[in-house]
Amino acid sequence: MSESFKQVPQSPMTQSGIGRVIPCKKLEAGDPVKWLVLGWRDLARAPALTAFYGLIFAAIPWFITYLVTLTGWHLVILPSIVCFMLIGPFLAAGLYDISWELEKGHKPSLWHSIKAVKRNAVNEWGFGILLAVLMIFWLRVASLIHALYPPYLEENLQNLLPFLALGTVIGAGFTLLVFFISAFTQPVLMERRVDLATAVLTSMHAVWINKVPMLIWAAIIATSVGIGFITGFAGFIILMPLIGYATWHGYIDTIEVKRGRHYE
């Protein structure tokens, strides 16, 4: 094992009362910042692999935007986003594998990270499909809210405000649901090879009992996504791998793992 890692006593575990939920630890408000620091260390130790996955994460939204600009056909957005939701977990699995290999003192490789999706392939696909279904549902709801806007009203802030408020509230609730479901599901599936229901319930339980630190983590992710869009997707080259590496350390910090370990 690398000298950067050592065995440490496990933090107290919190049981959920649900048999299929893996126990998790109580977090401190500053823990998400620590995950970023550890994620940055992984990024610096695997720059070539980081660039490979980062370019993919940046290329996908750029390609969607390019298709819309080229064709003027906004209907390509839905299938494109659905495809991204399906392959996103597999890209994240590669990043988690890199951090995992560094944790074990191994030299990560592209092929090894690509093969990470085979560890729990059925449930990984199930997770991707679940995210895609949720995304389709949200887009349908957003379309319904848009359809409710009376065409005879003038488009000013006063008239638009009720619909903007409704969309914001529903969108925030939907985003929160997705965050609960997906915060740690992928790392659980990778390391534990459990079924999808166990991984999802574990993720939801971990977020629920760590509301403040996980809210901070959600804000960090949202800020990173915002920076990525502001920079014309170039920011995703660094930020998405960083979030992926940090998520793995968040998983190690939060969910009971097979063996006690700590990354310094």
Results as ranks from 00 to 15, higher is better:
L43E: 09
L43M: 15
R45I: 00
A46E: 05
A48T: 13
Y53C: 02
Y53P: 04
G54C: 02
G54D: 07
L55S: 09
I56C: 13
F57K: 05
I60M: 06
P61V: 01
W62P: 01
F63E: 05
Y66H: 14
V68P: 09
T69R: 13
L70H: 09
T71L: 14
W73F: 15
H74G: 04
L75I: 11
V76P: 05
I77T: 06
I81A: 15
I81Q: 11
C83K: 01
L86W: 02
I87R: 03
I87G: 05
G88F: 15
G88M: 12
G88T: 12
L91M: 10
L91Q: 02
A92T: 09
A93V: 00
G94P: 06
G94M: 04
L95W: 03
L95G: 01
Y96T: 01
I98C: 03
I98F: 06
S99Q: 07
W100C: 11
E101L: 12
L102T: 01
L102F: 03
L102Y: 03
E103H: 12
E103W: 00
K104Q: 15
K104E: 09
G105T: 11
H106K: 13
P108R: 12
P108S: 03
P108H: 03
S109A: 10
H112N: 14
K118M: 03
K118F: 04
K118W: 03
R119K: 14
A121Q: 02
V122W: 01
N123M: 01
W125E: 04
W125C: 13
G126C: 05
G128E: 06
G128C: 09
G128L: 08
G128I: 08
I129C: 10
I129R: 02
L131W: 05
L131H: 12
A132K: 09
A132W: 10
V133L: 14
L134V: 07
I136H: 09
I136N: 01
I136W: 07
F137E: 11
V141K: 04
S143M: 01
S143V: 01
I145S: 10
H146L: 10
H146K: 13
A147R: 09
L148S: 08
L148D: 00
Y149F: 15
L153M: 07
E154V: 15
N156Q: 02
L157G: 08
L160D: 02
L160I: 07
L161N: 12
P162Q: 04
L164P: 00
L164H: 11
A165S: 12
L166P: 09
G167T: 05
T168N: 05
I170E: 08
I170Q: 10
G171S: 15
A172K: 09
A172N: 11
G173I: 12
F174W: 15
L176M: 11
